[in-house]
Simulated scan of single mutants.
Amino acid sequence: MSIRLVASDLDGTLVRSDGSLAERTVAALAAAEDAGLAVVFVTGRPLRWTREVFDHVGPHGLAVVSNGAMVWDVAGDAMRSVRAIEPDVALEVTELIRTAVAGSAFAVETMSGIALEHSFMERHPIPDGARRGTIAEIVDGPVLKLLARHEELAPLDFWDRAEAVVGSLVEITWSSTSSLLEMSAAGVTKASTLALLCEEHGISAEEVLAIGDMPNDIAMLQWAGTSYAMANAHESVLAVADHVAASNDDHGVARVIEGLLGLP
Rank of each mutant, 00 (worst) to 15 (best):
R48H: 12
H56S: 13
S81M: 09
L91V: 06
I114D: 01
D73R: 08
A102R: 10
G103S: 09
V82D: 12
R48F: 10
R45N: 12
A107S: 14
R51N: 09
F54Y: 08
V40F: 09
A69P: 13
D55C: 00
W49H: 11
E117P: 04
D55M: 01
A30S: 12
G76S: 09
M79W: 01
A100G: 10
S119P: 00
E86F: 02
A35W: 02
N67A: 01
V39A: 06
L29Y: 07
S104K: 06
V64D: 04
V64R: 08
F106R: 05
L116A: 05
A100L: 03
T99G: 09
S66F: 01
A105Y: 10
I85G: 09
M79Y: 03
V65L: 09
L96W: 00
R51M: 11
L37N: 11
R51C: 04
L96G: 10
V82C: 06
D77W: 00
L96D: 10
A100N: 08
V71P: 15
E92K: 13
A31P: 04
R80P: 05
R80F: 10
A78D: 14
R80D: 15
L96F: 01
V26I: 13
L91G: 11
R45G: 09
V40W: 13
A102L: 05
L37D: 13
A30R: 14
R45T: 06
A63F: 01
R48D: 15
H118E: 13
V71D: 11
D88N: 10
G103Y: 13
T43A: 02
V108M: 03
A90F: 05
I114R: 04
A100R: 12
H118L: 04
V40T: 05
D88E: 15
L116R: 03
V65H: 04
L47Q: 12
N67E: 13
R51Q: 15
T110D: 12
D55I: 00
G61Q: 06
R51W: 02
A75M: 07
F120E: 11
T110K: 11
D34L: 07
H60Q: 14
I97K: 05
G68Q: 10
A100M: 06
W72L: 07
I114W: 08
T94F: 04
T43F: 01
A105M: 05
V26K: 15
M70T: 05
G103N: 11
A115W: 02
A102I: 01
R80S: 13
A63H: 05
V108K: 06
V40Q: 08
F106Q: 07
E52W: 02
S112M: 06
H60M: 06
D73I: 02
A78S: 14
V65S: 08
G61L: 00
T94Q: 09
R98D: 15
I85K: 02
V57Y: 00
E86C: 01
S81N: 11
P46N: 03
V39R: 08
V64E: 03
T94W: 04
V64C: 06
G113R: 02
F54Q: 13
P59C: 04
G44M: 05
A78Y: 00
V101M: 08
T50Q: 14
A100Y: 04
A69L: 06
D88L: 03
E33R: 10
G103W: 13
T99D: 15
V71C: 07
F41S: 05
T43V: 02
S104T: 15
P46T: 00
A38Q: 14
R45H: 07
A78F: 00
D34R: 15
A115L: 02
V57G: 11
